[in-house]
């Protein structure tokens, strides 16, 4: 399930459950819709994401690419240990920044200190 939250300076898409070959098409559609609205700062919140496979990695990379091509900012936040391991094993972590919280991710977009 994906929830979209609009903050003052960014949009957060919170993914819960699994991002795999079954759920990736729905995720791709939701990401495309958010980008089509003109979002210029996007954070994927993975606090409730329990499983990620290469299909899910593809969704992340396509989101990152879409944002970059439009001059926008993109980051991932709250990825758990198993998810981070998939990022590292894939060697694709260099294509997106990953933060321990949404606040830190948002602060990275503006270069400010995260709110405390």
């Amino acid at each position: 399930m994906i929830t979209v939250t609009h903050r003052q300076n960014c949009t957060v898409m919170s993914f819960s459950g699994e991002l795999n070959s079954v759920t990736a098409p729905e995720a791709d559609a939701a990401i495309a819709a958010v980008c089509k609205e003109g979002c210029m700062a996007l954070i994927f919140d993975f606090a409730a994401l329990t499983y990620l496979s290469s299909a899910g990695l593809r969704s992340i990379l396509i989101g990152a690419k879409n944002m970059r091509e439009r001059g926008g900012r993109f980051a991932v936040a709250n990825a758990g240990e198993k998810i981070q391991r998939v990022f590292q094993l894939s060697g694709l972590a260099r294509h997106f920044a990953s933060f321990a919280s949404i606040d830190e991710a948002e602060a990275s977009f503006t270069g400010e200190e995260p709110a405390r």
């Binding site: 496979s53 290469s54 299909a55 990695l57 593809r58 990379l61 396509i62 990152a64 690419k65 998939v86 094993l89 894939s90 694709l92 294509h95």
Partner: peptide, 13 residues
């Protein structure tokens, strides 16, 4: 990033 090589990525994982 176009996903063309993602089949290979799965194998690599």
């Amino acid at each position: 990033l176009n996903g063309q090589d993602i089949g290979g990525l799965g194998v690599f994982l």
